[in-house]
Amino acid sequence: MDIALEQVGYTYAAGTPFQKQALHDVNVRIPSGSYTAIIGHTGSGKSTLLQHLNGLLKPTAGIVRIGDTQVTKETKGKQLKPIRRKVGIVFQFPEHQLFEENVLKDIMFGPLNFGVEEEEAKARALRWIERLGLPEGTAEKSPFDLSGGQMRRVAIAGVLAMEPDVLVLDEPTAGLDPAGRKEIMDLFYELHEQRDMTTILVTHSMEDAARYADHMIVMHDGMDVLQGPPGEVFADAERLAEWRLGVPRTVSFQRLYEEGAGLPPGPPALTEEQLAAYLAADLGKGGGAS
């Protein structure tokens, strides 16, 4: 399911002294089956953009196309619900949305709201509890008795159990420790690969964007300033700096190395493995590159 924004503008509190324009003529296409990363400095409009992806906000100008549904400022609230079934959002600190007396019911909340049968919803909940590596017996526990990391997983399971076609992730690993962070990011990547799920990651981590995404959107001052594969986006560090963004550590290390070695800048190394292979090739070792 493709998502496209055409000349989208969004103004908060229009017509009051507190009016603020958050999006400005945004034209963005997120291809079906892609893993798209949206990056931008705080206040660049990326969270406003995110809320347009499943009709939580309606554009004050322009059109948002989600599959074959159109959202404009005239769209009625009722027409938005089917969109929300197809596009699931994992918000930042999603554990804050837990409310049910036990984990099972909380995960079933989304599916039931979208008309999934009780039995099926329960089956899905149990399946996702297991898939997210939560310990046995978690289903009957109160979500508020779990550790922070487990609460995060339960909340994520609650969105995945809706089985959306598109999954939007807003800083899904904020506040987790390194091991937890990697497990969760790897899980999302697996889902993307196995189910061909369109994945949209809003992140501050250039490393995550480089490692997982195949397409990127750069936001700045409420506008989409650059779109393309990570290899292109991270090739020009100077331009990113103008938008107050950096490059992944692998790329900054690579550039440092190239500069000292008197080499022209090569294609950016997006993962540590790629960087090691690149260095090995240049040093005439490993991978048979010499």
């Binding site: 939580l56 609230g77 929300r84 959002i89 918000f91 804050h96 989304g110 709201n113 969105v159 809706m162």
Partner: peptide, 18 residues
Amino acid sequence: ETDKILKAQLARGSDISS
């Protein structure tokens, strides 16, 4: 916070206005 939670539940299909 209210706004965030409201949106998170709306995204999970919750419906307060009907």
